[in-house]
Every structure is written in C-alpha cells, then in structure tokens.
C-alpha cells in the first residue's frame, strides 16, 4: 500500500457529504478580556497551517467581553472544526461562523496623498466623490482620506489614487454584523447562571440532523 496515496485519500474523506468548496468564512468569537487569549486562539490556526486573512479584536457591546472577528478562506468542515476548538478554550464564551451572505461587513481604509495634487487636479476631487471618501486631515503637505466598504471598494480607490502620488495606505481588519444575531446581552446572562439554559450549549446539529439521520 502506497502510504502517501492512502494518506491523501483519507484526508479527502473528511468533509464527506458536505459542501467541499473553500470560501470566505467569518468567525465571531466572544471571550473574556484575558491576556494571552489572542495567542491561544491564534495557535489553533497556526497549528493547522491555516492563514488568518483578517483579524479584528475589540471590546463588545458588553463590558468586559471582547469580540474577535476572524476572516479566513476554508471549507465549512474545516471552519466548523476550528470553531469547536476555539469554543473549547476556557475563556471563550461563544463562537459563531458565517458565510459572507449571512453578514453585513465593512473594512475601513485611510489614504495619504500630497495636498498639492489634490488641489491642482480636478480629477482627484471627482474620484474621491465617486468613492464616497471623506477628508480626515488636510495639511499643507498632505491630506488623509478615509473610506469604508468591502475590500473591492477600498481597493478601487487605492488603484485610482496610485497615479496621483499616494504616499501611504492602510486598511483595517473586517468587522461584521451578523444578520440573524440578537446580540450577546441575553446570552451572557445565561452564561452567568450556574445551570445554563439550552441556549448556552447550542447544538448546530439539532435542527440539521433530520436531514442527515432518519430512522
């Protein structure tokens, strides 16, 4: 038996009967605000040699609870396993994952361009208008514009400004609102109870199992 072939075959069997194609997934993680937790979550990805495309971490709507927004391109099977491994960490309260269709998302970008080119070239002004950009700072030597949108939108302005002496560019990680989410306030109250309600350990299988398993 060719060992390599067998191993390749066995790794293929992983997502059997599931959507196999890789696509962008958004993982949302609610955690305690704890030093070292970022590392604990990051190594779940690095151990499996999976690249994090974008990562945002910031305080959530609830005091003391942090929210991670992680973007990666993988199959659903891999993403589900990652989500379970993350949720297993002691200081993680809850993990969700969604496709791009299931969220509203934005990234923010800042562009620094020489003020003189802006002032001189009417074209630039129109460009900015078209891209819905807004000036954050206007100085004698440079001006900083800001725009928010999907990756393609912030990219478009970037390409458009390149010929006009763009000095510096930066883009934030993705942040996303989950269309179906009711927020975390009510959930957290359940977590704080000694005997949690059914909500706390949601089981994504329960509603789907009928399709997979019928007596």
């Amino acid at each position: 038996m060719d060992i390599k072939k067998a191993q390749a075959a066995s790794s293929l069997s992983f997502g059997e009967g599931r959507a196999e194609a890789k696509q962008e997934y958004n993982i949302t993680v609610y955690t305690e605000n704890q030093i070292g937790l970022l590392n604990r979550i990051a190594i779940i990805f690095t151990r499996r040699k999976i690249n994090i495309e974008s990562l945002n971490t910031s305080p959530s709507e609830i005091d003391s609870i942090h929210r991670f927004d992680i973007v990666l391109t993988e199959t659903e099977d891999v993403v589900r396993k990652l989500a379970r491994q993350i949720e297993k960490q002691v200081e993680v309260l809850k993990v969700y994952y969604h496709t791009n269709d299931e969220i509203i998302w934005q990234e923010m970008a800042l562009y620094k361009v020489p003020t003189d080119t802006i002032a001189e070239k009417v074209l630039v002004e129109r460009l900015l208008r078209e891209h819905g950009a807004r000036a954050v700072v206007i100085r004698k030597d440079y001006t900083v514009f800001e725009t928010t949108g999907h990756r393609t939108e912030t990219d478009n302005l970037l390409y458009a400004l390149q010929p006009f002496g763009l000095i510096e560019f930066v883009r934030s990680a993705r942040i996303a609102i989950i269309k179906s989410s009711e927020g975390f306030n009510r959930k957290l109250r359940e977590f704080e109870q000694l005997e949690p309600g059914q909500e706390v350990s949601e089981n994504e299988f329960l509603s789907k199992r009928d399709k997979v398993f019928t007596m």
């Binding site: 002691v90 200081e91 309260l93 000694l194 059914q198 706390v200 350990s201 329960l206 199992r209 007596m215």
Partner: peptide, 24 residues
Amino acid sequence: SNHIRSYRPKPIVRNEYIEQAAEL
C-alpha cells in the same frame, strides 16, 4: 470554584440523541 462563566465543562444532555441512539 465550581463555576466559571465562560467555561462549560459538560455539554447539556439531549434526550433526542439518547432516543435516536437507543433506537439504532
């Protein structure tokens, strides 16, 4: 300690599964 809010050592037992498993 017997409770850490972010830590659920035991998943909730679902009777649906027990019933399905028993039937199988």
